[in-house]
Computed example of a mutant assay.
Amino acid sequence: MSQAEVTTAAAARPAPSPLWALSLFRSEAGTVFRRWRTIALLGVLAAVPVLVGIAVKMETSDGGAAGHGGGGPAFISQVTNNGLFLVFTSLAATLPFFLPMAVGVVAGDSVAGEANAGTLRYLLVAPAGRTRLLLAKFTATFAFCCAATLTVAASALAVGALLFPLGDVTLISGVTVSFGEGLLRALAVAGAVALSLVGIAALGLFVSTLTNSGIAAMATTVGLLITAQIVDQFPQLHAVQPYLFPHYWLSFADLLRAPVYWDQLLDNLGLQALYAAVFGSAAWARFTSKDVTA
């Protein structure tokens, strides 16, 4: 279908109602979460806390302390005292690679996968419009960000409760809070982690509009993720590091202080919003002018 044909069809159809926009999001979300690839990704993410919990339990079975050699994810030394810390440990372990890789796969396939399968042109004929369709795909990708983060957190909480004691939580600053407040802070941490993935989601969506190959889009997005992570490790490149989307990812640890340190948390949210605005706009500009012939 040529650009002219799509434009003519768009002009002939009536304006979609808000209910149609909601059903479009539901359709896109259903498409994302029904794929076997998505289910497999969530399964892998759910398995990470299980492996971490079992490893810590085995390491401390002789009375030793977890992470006594200084290695392992953050908070791992406190897991044996309170299973709730397995939530923070698992999020810290999955955030550098596993969570963003899963998001990159979903975002990279969002448009390119449809184009490769030949279904994108049929979506464009429906009374949705390219802008609404792209927004629905981004919203569905963000829903996956939330689902993936909550999968890790819920799995870690269940494993932590099964293998370790639960109780009052001693924060990084040394203040002890109730288990209920600790749960609320864990929920806030999960929310911060999910929002931290907005940048890679927007970047992946933009890459997805540049090609008709879902595999190429996914590989490019994951490659950009790895490149940004590597660049963020070199002190010589400190001038550009604050502009890299993963730079403030581990700032969620500041939610475990009393009082909470907001500076880097707000820097992270601002950076993710900047990436969403820049690459979301680039994706819109590319997608609205793209000639869909597949």
Score class of each variant (00 low, 15 high):
Leu99Met: 10
Thr293His: 13
Ser61Met: 13
Ala29Thr: 05
Leu133Ser: 08
Leu51Gly: 12
Gly167Gln: 08
Gly182Pro: 11
Glu181His: 14
Thr209Cys: 14
Leu163Thr: 15
Asn81His: 10
Ser281Val: 13
Ala92Gln: 04
Met218Lys: 03
Gly69Val: 05
Leu86Trp: 02
Leu210Tyr: 05
Val103Pro: 01
Val169Gln: 01
Ala294Trp: 12
Ser61Glu: 13
Phe245Asp: 01
Ser61Phe: 11
Leu269Met: 12
Asp62Gln: 14
Phe245Ser: 00
Glu28Tyr: 02
Pro14Tyr: 06
Thr38Phe: 08
Ala188Gln: 12
Ala11Met: 15
Val175Met: 04
Ala294Cys: 09
Met218Glu: 02
Phe234Gln: 03
Asn268Ala: 14
Ser178Arg: 07
Gly43Asn: 05
Gly113Met: 08
Tyr261Arg: 12
Ala258Val: 07
Val50Trp: 00
Val177Gln: 04
Thr209Ala: 09
Ser2Phe: 04
Ala9Phe: 10
Ile226Gly: 04
Ala186Thr: 06
Gly129Phe: 07
Leu224Thr: 08
Ser23Arg: 15
Phe287Leu: 07
Gly53Arg: 00
Gly53Ser: 03
Phe98Asp: 02
Trp36Glu: 02
Thr293Ile: 15
Thr176Arg: 11
Val106Gly: 02
Gly108Thr: 02
Leu269Lys: 01
Gly199Val: 10
Ala156His: 00
Gly71Ala: 15
